[in-house]
Protein backbone atom coordinates (compact mmCIF):
# COMPACT_ATOMS: atom_id res chain seq x y z
CA UNK A 1 0.00 0.00 0.00
CA UNK A 2 1.13 3.47 -0.84
CA UNK A 3 1.59 5.69 2.15
CA UNK A 4 -0.39 8.80 2.30
CA UNK A 5 -2.90 10.89 4.13
CA UNK A 6 -5.85 9.77 6.22
CA UNK A 7 -9.00 8.49 4.57
CA UNK A 8 -12.47 8.13 6.02
CA UNK A 9 -11.95 4.39 5.98
CA UNK A 10 -9.37 4.84 8.75
CA UNK A 11 -12.20 5.63 11.12
CA UNK A 12 -13.73 2.24 10.30
CA UNK A 13 -10.34 0.65 11.01
CA UNK A 14 -10.14 2.38 14.37
CA UNK A 15 -13.66 1.21 15.15
CA UNK A 16 -12.72 -2.35 14.25
CA UNK A 17 -9.63 -2.22 16.41
CA UNK A 18 -11.63 -0.80 19.28
CA UNK A 19 -14.22 -3.54 19.01
CA UNK A 20 -11.50 -6.22 19.05
CA UNK A 21 -9.95 -4.62 22.15
CA UNK A 22 -13.31 -4.40 23.89
CA UNK A 23 -14.21 -7.98 22.98
CA UNK A 24 -10.88 -9.30 24.24
CA UNK A 25 -11.39 -7.27 27.40
CA UNK A 26 -14.94 -8.53 27.99
CA UNK A 27 -14.10 -12.16 27.23
CA UNK A 28 -10.99 -12.27 29.40
CA UNK A 29 -12.71 -10.41 32.24
CA UNK A 30 -15.60 -12.88 32.22
CA UNK A 31 -13.34 -15.95 32.11
CA UNK A 32 -10.97 -14.39 34.62
CA UNK A 33 -13.83 -13.64 36.99
CA UNK A 34 -15.09 -17.23 36.94
CA UNK A 35 -11.55 -18.66 37.25
CA UNK A 36 -10.52 -16.24 39.99
CA UNK A 37 -13.63 -16.95 42.06
CA UNK A 38 -13.09 -20.68 41.57
CA UNK A 39 -9.51 -20.32 42.87
CA UNK A 40 -10.77 -18.29 45.82
CA UNK A 41 -13.33 -20.99 46.58
CA UNK A 42 -10.54 -23.57 46.62
CA UNK A 43 -8.86 -21.43 49.23
CA UNK A 44 -12.07 -20.83 51.15
CA UNK A 45 -12.55 -24.58 51.62
CA UNK A 46 -8.81 -25.03 52.27
CA UNK A 47 -8.47 -27.90 49.81
CA UNK A 48 -4.92 -29.22 50.40
CA UNK A 49 -2.30 -29.24 47.58
CA UNK A 50 -4.72 -27.45 45.20
CA UNK A 51 -4.72 -24.45 47.52
CA UNK A 52 -0.91 -24.14 47.56
CA UNK A 53 -0.80 -24.63 43.80
CA UNK A 54 -3.36 -21.86 43.24
CA UNK A 55 -1.44 -19.48 45.50
CA UNK A 56 1.81 -20.21 43.66
CA UNK A 57 0.27 -19.75 40.20
CA UNK A 58 -1.54 -16.56 41.19
CA UNK A 59 1.58 -15.05 42.77
CA UNK A 60 3.70 -15.88 39.71
CA UNK A 61 1.14 -14.44 37.31
CA UNK A 62 0.82 -11.29 39.40
CA UNK A 63 4.58 -10.81 39.69
CA UNK A 64 5.64 -11.30 36.09
CA UNK A 65 5.14 -9.12 33.01
CA UNK A 66 2.05 -9.82 30.92
CA UNK A 67 4.21 -9.51 27.82
CA UNK A 68 6.36 -12.47 28.90
CA UNK A 69 3.24 -14.49 29.72
CA UNK A 70 1.92 -13.74 26.24
CA UNK A 71 5.20 -14.84 24.66
CA UNK A 72 5.21 -18.02 26.73
CA UNK A 73 1.73 -18.98 25.57
CA UNK A 74 2.04 -17.77 21.99
CA UNK A 75 5.60 -18.83 21.13
CA UNK A 76 6.42 -21.36 23.83
CA UNK A 77 3.31 -23.47 24.21
CA UNK A 78 2.97 -24.46 20.52
CA UNK A 79 6.57 -25.72 20.47
CA UNK A 80 6.32 -27.64 23.74
CA UNK A 81 2.91 -29.21 23.21
CA UNK A 82 3.04 -29.42 19.40
CA UNK A 83 -0.26 -27.58 18.98
CA UNK A 84 -1.35 -24.56 17.02
CA UNK A 85 -2.22 -21.44 18.96
CA UNK A 86 -3.66 -18.43 17.15
CA UNK A 87 -2.85 -14.94 18.42
CA UNK A 88 -6.41 -14.44 19.65
CA UNK A 89 -6.39 -17.77 21.51
CA UNK A 90 -3.05 -16.94 23.12
CA UNK A 91 -4.34 -13.51 24.09
CA UNK A 92 -7.52 -14.88 25.63
CA UNK A 93 -5.70 -17.65 27.53
CA UNK A 94 -3.02 -15.33 28.90
CA UNK A 95 -5.19 -12.38 29.84
CA UNK A 96 -7.83 -14.63 31.41
CA UNK A 97 -5.18 -16.23 33.60
CA UNK A 98 -3.66 -12.88 34.45
CA UNK A 99 -7.05 -11.34 35.32
CA UNK A 100 -7.93 -14.42 37.36
CA UNK A 101 -4.78 -13.98 39.48
CA UNK A 102 -5.78 -10.44 40.44
CA UNK A 103 -9.45 -11.37 40.96
CA UNK A 104 -8.32 -14.24 43.18
CA UNK A 105 -6.57 -11.81 45.53
CA UNK A 106 -9.58 -9.48 45.62
CA UNK A 107 -11.99 -12.38 46.13
CA UNK A 108 -9.92 -13.87 48.96
CA UNK A 109 -9.85 -10.60 50.88
CA UNK A 110 -13.54 -10.04 50.14
CA UNK A 111 -14.41 -13.46 51.56
CA UNK A 112 -12.23 -12.80 54.57
CA UNK A 113 -14.04 -9.51 55.13
CA UNK A 114 -17.13 -11.53 56.03
CA UNK A 115 -16.56 -12.53 59.63
CA UNK A 116 -16.17 -16.19 60.53
CA UNK A 117 -18.81 -15.66 63.24
CA UNK A 118 -21.41 -14.98 60.56
CA UNK A 119 -20.59 -18.27 58.88
CA UNK A 120 -20.85 -20.06 62.21
CA UNK A 121 -24.19 -18.37 62.85
CA UNK A 122 -25.43 -19.47 59.44
CA UNK A 123 -24.36 -23.06 60.21
CA UNK A 124 -26.18 -22.90 63.54
CA UNK A 125 -29.33 -21.81 61.74
CA UNK A 126 -29.04 -24.98 59.69
CA UNK A 127 -28.00 -23.46 56.36
CA UNK A 128 -26.10 -25.84 54.12
CA UNK A 129 -22.58 -25.07 52.94
CA UNK A 130 -23.87 -23.95 49.55
CA UNK A 131 -26.58 -21.78 51.13
CA UNK A 132 -24.04 -20.16 53.42
CA UNK A 133 -21.82 -19.34 50.47
CA UNK A 134 -24.67 -18.21 48.24
CA UNK A 135 -26.85 -16.29 50.75
CA UNK A 136 -24.46 -15.07 53.43
CA UNK A 137 -20.92 -14.81 52.14
CA UNK A 138 -21.29 -13.84 48.48
CA UNK A 139 -23.63 -10.80 48.77
CA UNK A 140 -21.41 -9.16 51.38
CA UNK A 141 -18.19 -10.16 49.64
CA UNK A 142 -19.48 -8.71 46.34
CA UNK A 143 -20.28 -5.37 47.93
CA UNK A 144 -16.80 -5.34 49.46
CA UNK A 145 -15.00 -6.36 46.26
CA UNK A 146 -16.77 -4.16 43.73
CA UNK A 147 -14.51 -1.14 44.25
CA UNK A 148 -11.21 -2.98 43.70
CA UNK A 149 -12.78 -4.92 40.83
CA UNK A 150 -13.60 -1.71 38.97
CA UNK A 151 -10.05 -0.49 39.47
CA UNK A 152 -8.82 -3.81 38.13
CA UNK A 153 -11.14 -3.61 35.11
CA UNK A 154 -9.79 -0.19 34.16
CA UNK A 155 -6.28 -1.60 34.46
CA UNK A 156 -6.99 -4.78 32.50
CA UNK A 157 -8.46 -2.76 29.63
CA UNK A 158 -5.07 -1.13 29.28
CA UNK A 159 -3.29 -4.46 29.55
CA UNK A 160 -5.22 -5.65 26.47
CA UNK A 161 -3.11 -3.21 24.43
CA UNK A 162 -0.19 -5.66 24.82
CA UNK A 163 -1.87 -8.33 22.69
CA UNK A 164 -0.98 -6.19 19.66
CA UNK A 165 2.61 -7.35 20.15
CA UNK A 166 1.72 -10.97 19.30
CA UNK A 167 -0.31 -9.89 16.28
CA UNK A 168 -3.89 -9.49 17.46
CA UNK A 169 -5.30 -6.62 15.41
CA UNK A 170 -6.63 -4.57 18.29
CA UNK A 171 -6.75 -0.81 18.71
CA UNK A 172 -3.00 -0.49 19.35
CA UNK A 173 -2.16 -2.62 16.31
CA UNK A 174 -4.43 -0.46 14.16
CA UNK A 175 -2.59 2.54 15.61
CA UNK A 176 0.69 0.95 14.53
CA UNK A 177 -0.60 0.30 11.03
CA UNK A 178 -1.98 3.82 10.60
CA UNK A 179 1.19 5.28 12.09
CA UNK A 180 3.40 3.48 9.59
CA UNK A 181 1.17 4.42 6.67
CA UNK A 182 0.50 8.08 7.36
CA UNK A 183 3.67 8.95 9.31
CA UNK A 184 1.53 11.16 11.56
CA UNK A 185 2.39 9.74 14.99
CA UNK A 186 0.91 12.59 17.00
CA UNK A 187 -2.52 12.39 15.39
CA UNK A 188 -2.66 8.59 15.34
CA UNK A 189 -1.47 7.95 18.88
CA UNK A 190 -3.55 10.79 20.27
CA UNK A 191 -6.66 9.31 18.63
CA UNK A 192 -5.81 5.84 19.96
CA UNK A 193 -5.07 7.25 23.42
CA UNK A 194 -8.34 9.18 23.49
CA UNK A 195 -10.32 6.06 22.58
CA UNK A 196 -8.66 4.07 25.38
CA UNK A 197 -9.20 6.96 27.77
CA UNK A 198 -12.91 7.19 26.94
CA UNK A 199 -13.32 3.43 27.42
CA UNK A 200 -11.57 3.61 30.80
CA UNK A 201 -13.84 6.47 31.86
CA UNK A 202 -16.90 4.55 30.68
CA UNK A 203 -15.88 1.50 32.74
CA UNK A 204 -15.24 3.69 35.78
CA UNK A 205 -18.62 5.40 35.42
CA UNK A 206 -20.61 2.19 34.89
CA UNK A 207 -18.71 0.60 37.76
CA UNK A 208 -19.47 3.54 39.99
CA UNK A 209 -23.19 3.15 39.30
CA UNK A 210 -23.04 -0.58 40.00
CA UNK A 211 -21.16 0.06 43.22
CA UNK A 212 -23.75 2.60 44.36
CA UNK A 213 -26.46 0.03 43.72
CA UNK A 214 -24.71 -2.79 45.56
CA UNK A 215 -24.02 -0.60 48.55
CA UNK A 216 -27.48 0.89 48.78
CA UNK A 217 -28.30 -1.31 51.78
CA UNK A 218 -25.47 0.17 53.83
CA UNK A 219 -26.15 3.77 52.86
CA UNK A 220 -27.16 6.30 55.39
CA UNK A 221 -30.89 6.67 54.93
CA UNK A 222 -31.58 9.35 57.54
CA UNK A 223 -33.49 8.98 60.74
Amino acid sequence: MQYGSFTWYDLVLLGQGLSVSVLVFLATSAIGLVLGIAWATVRFYRIPVLMQLVTLVAETLKNSPVLVQLFLVFFGLPVLAQINVTPVQAAVITLSGNTAAFIYVIAVSAIESVGRDQIEAARVFGLSRWQTLRRVVSPQATAFAIGPLIGLAVNQLQVTSLVSVIGVVDLTKIGNILNLRTLEPFIVWTAVGVLYYLCAKLIARLGGKLEARLRVHSDWKGL
Partner: peptide, 21 residues
Protein backbone atom coordinates in the same frame (compact mmCIF):
# COMPACT_ATOMS: atom_id res chain seq x y z
CA UNK B 1 -5.93 11.14 34.92
CA UNK B 2 -4.43 11.00 31.43
CA UNK B 3 -1.36 8.94 32.21
CA UNK B 4 -3.25 6.44 34.34
CA UNK B 5 -6.01 5.85 31.81
CA UNK B 6 -4.02 5.47 28.60
CA UNK B 7 -2.07 2.21 28.07
CA UNK B 8 1.66 2.56 28.59
CA UNK B 9 2.46 1.08 25.19
CA UNK B 10 0.41 3.82 23.50
CA UNK B 11 2.18 6.53 25.52
CA UNK B 12 5.52 5.04 24.61
CA UNK B 13 4.73 4.85 20.88
CA UNK B 14 3.54 8.45 21.10
CA UNK B 15 6.99 9.51 22.29
CA UNK B 16 8.99 7.01 20.27
CA UNK B 17 7.42 7.88 16.91
CA UNK B 18 6.45 11.43 17.77
CA UNK B 19 9.70 12.94 19.02
CA UNK B 20 11.62 12.42 15.74
CA UNK B 21 8.85 14.34 13.94
Amino acid sequence: DIFRNVPFIVQMFFFYFGLPV
